[in-house]
Every structure is written in C-alpha cells, then in structure tokens.
Design a protein around this nucleic acid. Sequence first.
DNA 1: GCCAACGTTGGC
DNA 2: GCCAACGTTGGC
Length: 156
Amino acid sequence: MGYWLLKSEPDVFGIDHLKDRPDQTEPWDGVRNYQARNMLRDQMRAGDLAFLYHSSCAVPGIVGIVQIVREGYPDVSQFDPDARYYDPKSSPANPRWYRVDVRYKRHTKRVLPLAELRTYADGPLAELPLLRKGNRLSVMPVTPGQWEFILALENR
DNA sequence: GCCAACGTTGGC
DNA sequence: GCCAACGTTGGC
C-alpha cells in the first residue's frame, strides 16, 4: 500500500467539506502540475492512504487522513471552458490532467502543524518533500517510515 | 502584504 | 536549447 500527502486550501476544499459530502467522497481535481499529475496518473492505487494537509491558512499542517478510492482518470474539468481549471490545449482524446477520488477516513486527533513537523526536518522527516525549501508540490509520496512517525506524533 | 522559490512561457 | 519575464504558491 502506498502513502501520500495531499495539499489543499481549507477555504477551497477543506477536510470538513469532504467529511460533509453524502458519501464522504470527492474527486481530487484541479491539479495542474506535471510532477503531481504523473503521481496521480501512474502511481496512486485504490486503497492507498494520504495525509490531508491544509495550506495558506492560520496554522498550516496535517489535519486528517483520506483514502484513495479510485485510481487516476482524466480530470474532466480541463474540458469545460467555463470551469476554473479549463485547459484549451487538452482534449478528451488526449487528456493532459488527471484526478483520483478520495474518501474521508478521519481527522487526526489534533492538527499536526508544519512548524512542528519542521522540528524533525534533520531527523526522521529529512526526506519528506513538504519540508524541503521552496517545495510547492500539492501531491507527494510519503514513505512507510515517515507515515508511522507522523502518526505517532498524534498522541504527543 | 511581502517575498522567496519555483514552474511555465515564449522570443531568439 | 537558452534564459528572461512572468505568474503562482505558500509561509510568515
């Protein structure tokens, strides 16, 4: 099973929004970065788990856990001229952008702030892309070791 | 609001 | 293919 971290802005698509959906499942769409696209399209598998991270807010950090319930498929918002994520260079025959479906699992017992995660940037979380300078990836892999370490932080 | 870092675009 | 200009991200 794979582990991931997904970033969102809580004002746009927060964990409470996901939890309040009828089946607690939504497409993870609007990703318009090739590196992130490749992971959505090629590497994520149904059943994988992901930390949900809130960015651009008062306390950026990990707020919950979601499950990938549908593997990568074309992000239809790229074909809609009226959609925010429309891409005129893409077409259904040759889609450029992909999305997965995610289902709410749970909130973490507490928010795990970026500032706290950073204190482990020279140790167990040294290779976590989130903590690397200038990182802007909205989808990133998490190793099993990093996953277990972060989960353990919940109880501190 | 500021600004560093990064990705993309487009002229050459 | 290079690289300057530009737009975006995202912490602070």
